[in-house]
Amino acid sequence: MENQDIKTKIQKYRFFLFLLTVYCLLFTVQDAHAMHISEGILPFNWAAFWFLVALPFVAFGLYRLRKLSAVDLSFKPLVGLMAAVVFVISCMPIPVPTAGTCSHPCGTGISGILLGPLISILITAVALFIQALFLAHGGLSTWGADIVSMGVAGSFAGFLTFRALRRVKINMAIAGFMAGLFADWATYLTTSVELASGIRGDSPFLPLFWKIVIAFIPTQLPLGIIEGAMTAGMVVLLYKKRPDLLVKMRVLKPEEVAI
């Protein structure tokens, strides 16, 4: 009898419930820092799985850090500061005109370009850890999954795109733009895979994956472009003001600066 009452009440508000769902799915998913998978979303086994996937990348990052900091004492402070930059950038709300909401860039594209993907993964891991612990963005249990999407996918996509375009002599601004764009979109695709596999329960994977991808589109498509523009702006500014830093980070060859 009581069950019937609940059913009646739910039926009474069904249209409102549906509209709320559509609104949440289409317009506000990104508003809640959805690049980070929230604490508790992934069940234990999936959380553990993504930790195992992330672990070797972080280990390689640490190995590289140890090697480079043995040669240059300023390398550890530099990596720490870049982690702080990624933290600050990924906390900045930027308006997404198509969705009428705010979202945030990842910042992993630029760290991948400047310090290489392995160090960038380490930087992302550090930024995500602090955000999970003190701001409830992301989570400790979803740390592995977030490292894989933002760190591994984002950094490698940004780094490889930038290097490939520079190799074929594409100019700095366009290469930076494409690197930021692909870093963002790679992160969002990987996040969709992680979310769909984690919350699907007994339902098939692919339909839910596509629903999540579609839900991300209104914000993530323009956000990728914004992140691309931001990365291009950063690279161009560094090129104009401090090309020595780009040479130090082996983004540019010394002769390219001389020209």
Partner: peptide, 11 residues
């Protein structure tokens, strides 16, 4: 402006 801001932070 946002690109300049992020670039300045990196510098």
């Amino acid at each position: 402006s946002f690109g300049t801001l992020a670039g300045s932070l990196t510098i």
